[in-house]
Design a protein around this nucleic acid. Structure first.
Lengths: 211, 211
DNA sequence: ACTTTACTATGACATGTGTTACCAACTGAC
DNA sequence: GTCAGTTGGTAACACATGTCATAGTAAAGT
């Protein structure tokens, strides 16, 4: 928990003390489910290491990718759920090794009044998630699949810090809300153009991976 | 401003007094621009009558429809903008006659600390806008244009309370991020199926307008 | 009344994407 | 090694949507 000091949250010292006192450090492994559909959410996660993938189940039954969370970010949806004491309609999955601090739900509101830095953090967080959703909308509405695929690969590269992306075509298709065949087709074209190399469960972005 | 009492905000009396004192009642007519790109936003609008359309300009230059605001709703994006004292990247346009109360930006944060009901209102508001964006994403990602068009018409009907929708095909195309020709085509099919009647700048939904 | 502009209708066509089907290659379990 | 399961490659096709061209028609301005 001492790690907390070394990370980028800009909280005042008193708040950091509270976080140390009431927050619970948790570790998750690849694929672990941190929040799930239908369960009550009683804590809000602050991500301090690794990446979370946050999904939402739609009425139609399909899942959509809401956003990824990484360093020092938190899940606005979880916040809403906590406040309203309602069952979750989202699921969060660990991508690789993940450390979070779980903030108990009864502190959220209290700190909002007590600590301006907490309030700012929560507000900024909402605002950032908002922007990301807007980016998604723009992407889906105005860009063709090949552009979206390229953007997806770049984002993965950025998050993992590696130009080797570990994912099956099927997974990618899921996150882009399309089908496996289509993804394979487009990836093959990228490979033929010398942008990437394809292996089983693995895509390597070559150095001139642009556009 | 006395109207305030009669509307559905669930604020505590002291807050209502403050709103009366510092808020400014404003009236707008069809097409009036309430917030615009590049301007600083120094107030947050509470809609008390009519409907606002809120748009955002994307990097690509295209505009996307964020959401509609009507009774007792407010604009979360404006809130973010106010807090960060940054120029607006959104535009709000009056649809028909609109009354709003403009809350000065310096009160937003103050009230957040002072009045739980205000804090809840703001939080709920974020949460609702969030849900709407998600609905948009689902709609764009998983539904065909004809479904989306029908949903659009129903929403317009709901908001205006009338089964006669005043809009050109071009406007509709814009909001659905498609082209005029496509909208005309789909509307004509709906007309041929006996769901609607088409006039110039006007669409009448017939009573068995379903599915 | 005449011109101009905005709005709508419609055909023809190009293209992106979804779908189905089938096969090949790899992986892990037994 | 065999087998089943997963993953990826490819062809063929259907269809929704975007685009271009062209014309008719209503409204608005002069």
């Amino acid at each position: 928990m001492d790690k907390l000091d070394t990370f980028g949250f800009e909280f005042e010292p008193a708040l950091i003390e509270e976080i140390k006192k009431f927050g619970e450090l948790k570790h998750f492994k690849e694929g672990d489910i941190i929040m799930d559909y239908g369960k009550y959410i009683r804590m809000m996660p602050l991500v301090i290491k690794g990446t979370l993938k946050v999904l939402k189940k739609e009425d139609s039954g399909k899942e959509i990718l809401l956003y990824y969370l990484s360093n020092n970010e938190t899940c606005s949806m979880a916040y809403s759920c906590c406040l309203e004491e309602k069952k979750s309609d989202i699921r969060a999955i660990a991508e690789g090794e993940v450390d979070i601090i779980a903030i108990p739900h009864n502190k959220l509101d209290e700190w909002l009044h007590k600590y301006p830095s907490w309030k700012n953090y929560i507000m900024r967080s909402f605002s950032e998630r908002f922007s990301e959703l807007l980016k998604s909308i723009e992407s889906i509405a105005f860009h063709k699949l090949d552009d979206r695929l390229i953007a997806y690969l770049k984002e993965k590269q950025r998050l993992s810090g590696s130009s080797v992306i570990k994912a099956s075509h099927y997974q990618i298709a899921d996150e882009l809300a399309t089908s496996r065949v289509v993804v394979s087709r487009l990836l093959k074209i990228l490979e033929n153009n010398g942008k990437i190399l394809l292996y089983r469960n693995e895509i390597k972005l070559l150095k001139d991976f642009e556009c």
